[in-house]
Design a protein around this nucleic acid. Structure first.
Lengths: 247, 247
DNA sequence: TCAATTATTCAGCAGTTGATGAATACTTGC
DNA sequence: GCAAGTATTCATCAACTGCTGAATAATTGA
């Protein structure tokens, strides 16, 4: 028998406990990091069924831990969701900004809309093309949030506005004298096309009777930038297409 | 006191009760049709929070009826959701097919990609532009379903494949010798752009600092067909843009 | 070595969920 | 006018929900 210890963990933060892993990992890399396992399980479930379609018990069960551990690390279900959402954001955002910057620098005065958009898309589409299921799940999660009217816009903005403004700045360089309004509407259409692509519903598979596959991100990577860039140019350089004034 | 009546409604269908309103409406148009009121309330809630983010109690409360009445008309929560999804589908599908057919007929051999896409989009965008909140809700609901990986693809297909194939047939006429693969991928991008537009997250409003408004369907209606048509032409007529052979 | 700290599990609560059988109110046809 | 059918409400259930206090196990630091 052990002596009964009363008042365990009295030194924890008073009202809100918070267990952000600080410093080096405590365990060897071989040992399972429960926190990451929980995040993986949550990512998997949230991406498929959204915030309300998932119970903390389901996540805990898949991660093979007790539900109390979820609350230990993330406080609330919403805290867990936010942690999932933010975990990979920094990585992909950094890659996208670097990709855009690298293109702008290398292209110089030969900068093109298609080049900028391709630089923006490639980091995402390449990670999706590797077939890593966890990144697939993460992208599907983004798509879900981006289509959530109630709080999606705010959450997306908080996490991704930096990158988007970076993209739009680069596009402005490629489109002299562009109207801001056309620029933003064009981005809106780009965002929609990308979002549906990432959501992986398999709808295009059925519609095309197997000719196109939602999971074929290489096929998408080859087509998306030309398609979207063409739209940008049509909308943002109307004088060329609409022949308002003869050249 | 009333005499106690035992075994009321013993003549109902044995296992599954089903109350599909058959024949003309029983009440005058002025009297509130509870069934429609429930559908309106459900549409409102489901469009904002998705299937799992809504409780039957919330719907019942907004419709000002007892929850039992929901089950009386629709059996299950899922039955209610499906009824909402299908209620307006027939109307908008009919309008879209007629719009495409009318354009194809009127254009004759001058048929254009932009014309077809515009004919496909206008019925939706016009209904959205009138500002009828119930149609707004319905369109947002479609957007939600279209981005639901678990069962969205199947549900969308069951309801909308007819129209989409009609659209693609018309596009084929406008794009001689088009590759089927490019055609379907192009539709995929169109679908994404439309879906995000309908989901009304307000993200573009914040991103553009008020310059663009998600609710401004007239602005969208003027821009979307040109943008998308341009992408189609780029992808489906590559020889023209990629200068493989000089003309 | 062992006390303090951190990680994990255990057991369970209070509120909510979708659903249902029965009671009551309304409508209709005869 | 009343019996049969239809619409609506009432009261309630069993299962499930997020969450928590306390117990136990593992790790660390001096």
């Amino acid at each position: 028998m052990y002596a009964v210890r009363v008042f365990t963990q009295p030194t924890n933060m008073s009202t809100k406990r918070r267990k952000v892993r600080r410093g080096r990992p405590l365990k060897t890399d071989a040992a399972p990091d429960m926190r990451e396992r929980i995040l993986d399980a949550a990512e998997d479930h949230f991406s498929r069924h959204g915030f309300w379609g998932v119970t903390v018990r389901e996540v805990a069960q898949e991660a093979k831990v007790d539900t109390a551990l979820l609350h230990y690390y993330f406080d609330t279900k919403r805290g867990l969701f936010d942690a999932v959402f933010e975990r990979r954001a920094e990585i992909i955002n950094k890659e996208r900004i670097e990709s855009i910057d690298a293109y702008v620098k290398s292209a110089g005065s030969a900068i093109s809309v298609e080049g900028v958009i391709d630089a923006f898309l490639q980091p995402i589409l390449q990670r999706a093309a590797t077939g890593d299921q966890r990144w697939h799940n993460y992208f599907a999660l983004i798509a879900q949030v981006n289509n959530t009217p109630a709080w999606g816009g705010e959450t997306m903005g908080r996490t991704f506005d930096n990158v988007i403004h970076h993209l739009i700045d680069a596009l402005r360089q490629a489109l002299p004298d562009v109207s801001e309004e056309e620029l933003y509407w064009s981005y809106h259409f780009l965002s929609g096309a990308l979002t549906l692509t990432l959501s992986q519903t398999g709808r295009i598979d059925r519609l095309s009777e197997g000719l196109c596959k939602s999971s074929d991100f290489q096929a998408i990577g080859r087509r998306m930038a030309p398609f979207i860039a063409s739209g940008f140019e049509r909308l943002c350089k109307p004088q060329a297409a609409k022949r308002k004034k003869a050249p």
